[in-house]
Computed example of a mutant assay.
Amino acid sequence: MPKMKTRRAAAKRFSKTGTGKIKRNHAFMNHMLEHKPKSAKRKLRKSTTMAKGDVKRTERLIPYK
């Protein structure tokens, strides 16, 4: 069976932690930032772990990462 190919778009967006969880960045930080509260922008800056329901689908996109 041939090797699976990594989806390059997903590889640029997601990474794995040491324990195998998937890290992602928050959305809504690209434009129209003057309308968003400072506290909301501060919270969106940090990365977070992927939701449990999306992990299985995302792991197929980045099999070797």
Rank of each mutant, 00 (worst) to 15 (best):
R45T: 12
K56Q: 14
M32A: 11
V55Y: 04
G53I: 04
K52C: 01
R24E: 11
L61E: 14
T58L: 15
A11H: 03
N25K: 14
P63A: 05
H26A: 06
I62D: 10
K36L: 12
K52D: 13
R57N: 12
M29Y: 08
T48V: 14
N30H: 07
R42A: 12
M29D: 08
L44D: 06
K21N: 08
S39I: 03
A51M: 10
N30G: 14
H26C: 08
M1K: 08
N30A: 12
A11F: 02
A11C: 03
P63D: 05
M29A: 15
A11V: 00
K46C: 02
T49G: 01
S39H: 08
S15M: 03
N25M: 10
P37N: 07
E59F: 06
K16G: 00
R42M: 06
H31W: 07
K5N: 11
F28P: 00
T58A: 15
A40F: 11
R8A: 12
R13I: 02
G53Y: 07
T6F: 01
R60L: 15
K3P: 09
F14K: 03
M4A: 14
H35R: 07
F28V: 08
F14P: 05
K38S: 09
T17C: 01
A40L: 14
R42W: 02
S39F: 03
K3C: 05
S39G: 00
A51F: 07
I22T: 02
K16L: 13
H26P: 01
L33W: 00
T19F: 04
G18F: 00
A9S: 12
K46Q: 09
A51H: 13
M32T: 01
D54V: 06
K12H: 05
G53S: 15
T17W: 01
M4G: 03
M1D: 10
L61Y: 05
H31I: 05
K43C: 04
R45Q: 14
G20I: 03
G20Q: 03
K36P: 00
A27F: 10
E34K: 06
D54L: 14
K52T: 10
L44G: 07
R42C: 02
R57T: 14
K41W: 02
T19A: 14
K16D: 01
V55G: 04
T48Y: 12
G18H: 03
M4P: 09
R13Y: 01
M32S: 07
N30F: 12
T58F: 08
T19M: 05
K23P: 00
K12W: 01
Y64T: 09
R7K: 13
V55C: 04
K38M: 04
I62Y: 09
S47P: 09
H35W: 09
P63T: 05
I62L: 05
G53H: 13
R8W: 05
K65Y: 04
T19G: 08
T19Y: 05
S15C: 02
K36H: 01
K41H: 06
G18W: 00
R45N: 12
